[in-house]
Amino acid sequence: MTNIIEATHLRKTYGDTVAVADVSLTVQKGEIFGIVGPNGAGKTTAVESIMGLRKPDSGTVSVLGLDPQTQAQELRQRLGIQLQEASLPDYMKVWEALDLFASFYKQTVPWEPLLAQWGLSEKRNTRFKNLSGGQKQRLFIALALLNDPEVIFLDELTTGLDPQTRRATWDVVRAIRDQGKTVILVTHFMDEAEELADRIAVIDQGKVAALDTPRVLIQGLQAGSTVRFTGRNGFDAALLKGVEGVTAVTQQAQQIIVKGDGPLLARVAAALSQHDIVPADLRVEQADLEDVFLALTGREIRS
């Protein structure tokens, strides 16, 4: 695997505020690399230092073998960038934006199909200020794909999109990756990162708190799993306590909650069927990235 991005010990401060304390990461060719963390964790500053929009106080960055500070123009020809808090002139029409940005690049894909792909064909003559939030966001995504980039940075991609467009956008992100492109996905939505990212860096307070595949991160929690089902009246919780791997059995009204490790669902199901109990709603709950974040930082991500 080739490293597309290598960042080591990035640090960026604004006066007394440390936006990025110490971030090192490598991104490999063809992966979707998620950068997650709460708002204000330093994700955007770190990523904007990597793309060369900000100059880190210290640390080194190389993207596609280029220095984002000294070879910015050359590098940006090959990057697709969708930024937070960016805008276009109020009176600029959708087609004019695409046509104008196309003139900045040596190589571009035709923009009409991009408009169609992002559901903006009917808006081609609409002024930027008259677009909805979601339409603006889709226009920015189309602009980021205009130069057929090798590396695409998507910062809070689905913020402002409705749930349906959000799902469709996820499919497009996967499709971009499947074309062999590298995607850096910055998000505070843990479900989005878990769904899309091949590897994830969890950023908290300007540092990388963890970096691995979502699977490894979740397994690393050793949080075990939880099995729930509805018990009939008079269900005796004691008959599960002896089952291998079970660490706790609790009852809330008719809900039986079994916590434990290993193949818990199978063992609980086997134990129940030995007693001729076959609950219809037996289900297992796995830990997710939200739990990973909570475990790493001791805080909920949306605090």
Partner: peptide, 11 residues
């Protein structure tokens, strides 16, 4: 308004 910011992300 962040218009220059968007321009800057292009080469």
């Amino acid at each position: 308004q962040g218009i220059l910011r968007r321009f800057r992300a292009a080469p």
